[in-house]
Amino acid sequence: MCTYPLSKPFLLAILFIKEQLKEPVALLWIVISPAVTFYLLTYARVTGDELYRDYTSATSWFYAFISSSVALFGLAFYIVGRRESGFLRSFVYTKRTKITFLTGQFLAYSFMSVIYCSVFYVLTRGYFGSVALDEWMVIVGRFYMCFLLFSTPALLLTLVPIGFQNSNTLFSICSVAMLALGIGSLSASHPLFNVMGLFNPMGWANRIMLVGVTESAPVVAVVVGLIIVTGWLVFRFLLINPVWSRY
């Protein structure tokens, strides 16, 4: 009985996962669309060497983009949605319930990030050869770190008092801008791109996907530190009342 309060975030996470899996359109779109794009791009530029390209380097931008989508349109957008629908107003108005809600939400989307990563791996790995458990585990580890990296800006965006539609637009702009800036800086020589690239999480996520978690130890330390601070900030300043409401 005394473990019940501790188990609440896990039980809530199971309900959130159930809710997400009952709405498979988002799952399909976030994973299927990058997979389709991947195959289209590969088909368009296929050469003799392309088939022998390293899987990780061929897909790192895709994994980085999917992890940003899970953080922005899963973890963060659902917080905005739950606020704007009045769900938070109905249930989450004490410190204890805030902790339960935020932990449950974070656990649910941590799990979902692994699902998204795994589905994309299965969909694309076959093109380069057979799937391998040890490789999958390495990729999932890197992907989860990317998810944590994007969770910081995504969670901070939930503190902006804007409604559902505007949040959607803002998240889309951030997502596309990060991707465009990241890929654009690859071939750009202007120093401004290098400076902007330093502050672009997509570039850092791509690097984590390429070189690994332990090899990116300083970046990982910053990511973990930031997510802890962000968690406290969101707990402290979480908007409860819908923005559309006069309350």
Binding site: L15, K22, S85, S245
Partner: peptide, 13 residues
């Protein structure tokens, strides 16, 4: 315990 005017439930549940 407080029941607010706004009651929102996830529609798939």
């Amino acid at each position: 315990l407080y029941l607010s005017q706004i009651i929102a439930t996830p529609p798939v549940f």
